Simulated assay, not measured.
Amino acid sequence: MKIVTVSLFAIGLGLASMSASMAMPVPPLDQAAAASDTATIPVAGGCGPGWHRGPYGGCRPMYNCPPGWHPGPAGRQCFRNW
């Protein structure tokens, strides 16, 4: 009988704590459109500023070589065009 009482108390305590938590509160309906516009942060392909997506979907830094130069195999160093 003692195990049943403790089990019911634990279940009741768990249910009471679940009803009090608010993991994702619902905003008022009149402010929903304004909140969604300000919550969006534009980024370059999901990589952030100064980065771009590579051929296999990974994030790579943007390196710009001056005219007469070309990027190397890894794109991290500029080499002169010969």
Rank of each mutant, 00 (worst) to 15 (best):
G72N: 15
M24L: 12
K2H: 11
S21C: 13
M1N: 08
N64C: 03
L13W: 08
A20N: 09
W69R: 09
R80D: 02
P25V: 10
L29C: 05
M18Y: 14
P66Y: 04
V26M: 14
P42N: 05
P71E: 04
G12Y: 01
G72P: 00
M24F: 11
G50W: 02
S7E: 05
F9K: 08
G57D: 03
A74L: 14
F79H: 05
G48F: 09
R80Q: 05
R76G: 15
T38S: 12
P71K: 11
Q31H: 07
N81G: 02
W51P: 00
L15C: 14
A39E: 03
G14V: 10
S21H: 15
I11N: 01
A16S: 14
P71T: 06
T40H: 09
A32D: 03
P27E: 02
V43W: 04
S21Y: 14
I41P: 03
G45M: 04
D37L: 01
D30R: 08
R53Q: 12
A44G: 06
R80F: 02
P61R: 06
M1P: 06
A35G: 03
A35E: 01
P66A: 15
A32N: 04
A74V: 11
H52A: 15
S7H: 01
V6E: 11
W82L: 11
M18C: 08
Y63C: 13
R53K: 11
G14K: 12
G45F: 02
I3P: 05
N81T: 00
R60C: 03
P61H: 07
M62Q: 13
A16M: 14
A16F: 14
R80G: 00
F79E: 00
I41Y: 04
V26T: 14
S7F: 09
P25L: 11
R76L: 14
Y63V: 13
H70E: 11
S7R: 01
V6D: 09
R80V: 00
M1F: 09
A34S: 07
T38E: 05
A10S: 11
Q77L: 07
A10R: 05
L29K: 09
I41G: 01
N81H: 02
V26E: 15
G14F: 15
R76C: 07
V4Y: 12
G48P: 04
